[in-house]
């Protein structure tokens, strides 16, 4: 993999999937979307190019947060909602680690909502895999901040009366620099987004539309299911026109200030009219519009929607320390203790 981050030590040996398999029995339900996410990670980590000892996997609490036990890296299975805060400490304390975080929609958007927006705002260089199954899996089926309005769950027998978060919108509202959305049923899309996240300096959010087969089965099926995906999924790639459909006949254009769906060949629309995706644009305007699109009038957008370059928090910490070390007269604690007003008693 072509790599830019020089802080993290590269591996000198070829790594493989086996290097990251843990000896622990994977205990997710058979058919749970999390299995595919684990497979994607095991495919990506050996190819990133870092030493295997430099990976650190942090999580909170939830089915998704069991993840660290299943990959053979350094890691912490934390407490509910606090993975982003733990990861922040890991990365600031040791920027030579490649920090990954596994979390759920409840873990990161309910109890951990505060840490989630702040890690994004600070742009700490960590990669967050957000398993969005629109439900609390581990506690057996209560609604979450991403459960669609009206959905019947164990704590909403008459349907929820809450407006769900759109993860992409939240990320951009928090000044996120990287946001990708991927389905758990397409390992290629997952691995590509993970590589891009690894390359990105700053907080990377990968929202994975994950299926909880037990408590919210087929929650994403209307978009990512085999029979719906052609119609409802738009996979964006940087520098390429935003088209989808069975024959790539549909596209997005910008009309006035709004995105609009057009069909190539109809009403004089040509392939050249279609909007080109610019994931690296620093301005999040179009990225936000893309993140908010949803059926029935629009497709849902997948792939790396935003990947913008901004300074990272951890780099700036190092810079300030370097500057202070070069410019301060206080070089050790003896200097400090003897600085300012001191006097001798003989």
């Amino acid at each position: 993999m072509d790599f830019v981050n020089t802080t993290i030590e590269r591996t000198t040996v070829q790594l493989s999937k086996a290097d990251f398999e843990s000896d622990q029995m994977v205990k997710w339900c058979p058919g749970c979307g999390a299995h595919a996410i684990l497979a994607a990670v095991e495919r990506v980590f050996p190819k990133i190019g870092y030493r295997k000892e430099n990976f650190c996997m942090i999580s909170g609490i939830g089915c998704s947060s069991r993840f660290p036990y299943y990959v053979n890296t350094y890691g912490i299975h934390g407490i509910h909602g606090r993975a982003a805060a733990i990861s922040t400490g890991v990365k600031i304390a040791n920027p030579r680690l490649s920090v990954w975080m596994a979390t759920g929609d409840g873990d990161s958007l309910a109890i951990g909502g505060n840490h989630f927006i702040h890690v994004i705002r600070r742009n700490v260089d960590i990669n967050i895999l957000l398993f969005n199954n629109q439900i609390y899996g581990l506690t057996k089926g209560q609604y979450s901040p991403t459960t669609p309005m009206g959905k019947v769950t164990k704590t909403s027998p008459q349907g929820t009366i809450e407006h769900p978060f759109n993860v992409g919108e939240l990320v951009m509202g928090a000044q996120g620099t990287f946001y990708a959305r991927v389905p758990d049923n397409n390992i290629t899309m997952m691995t590509e987004a993970m590589f891009e996240a690894a390359k990105h300096d700053g907080t990377s959010i990968i929202e994975i539309m994950q299926n909880c087969i037990i408590f919210a089965d087929k929650a994403h099926n209307d978009v990512i299911g085999k029979e719906h995906k052609d119609e409802n999924m738009l996979l964006v790639k940087n520098g390429q026109p935003m088209t989808w459909g069975k024959n790539n006949e549909k596209g997005l254009i910008l009309k006035d200030t709004m995105l609009e769906v057009v069909e190539i060949g109809i009403n004089g629309v040509t392939a050249d009219d279609i909007l080109i995706h610019d994931a690296y644009n620093q301005d999040p305007g179009i990225h936000l519009m893309l993140a908010k699109l949803a059926p029935p009038h629009f497709p849902m957008v997948f792939g790396v929607i935003r990947s913008a370059m901004f300074p990272t928090y951890d780099d700036m910490v190092e810079e300030q320390i370097k500057y202070a070390k070069e410019n301060s007269k206080i070089r050790n604690v003896d200097d400090l203790l003897n600085s300012g007003d001191v006097w001798d008693i003989k």
């Binding site: 922040t88 400490g89 910490v317 500057y323 604690v333």
Partner: peptide
């Protein structure tokens, strides 16, 4: 006292303060 290498993180709340410390 960054010149002594101290990394000081003003967190978003006390929970983040201690959790970042646990990570560190």
């Amino acid at each position: 006292h960054k010149s002594l290498g101290a990394k000081v993180f003003q967190a978003e709340d006390e929970i983040a303060g201690i959790c970042s410390s646990i990570g560190a």
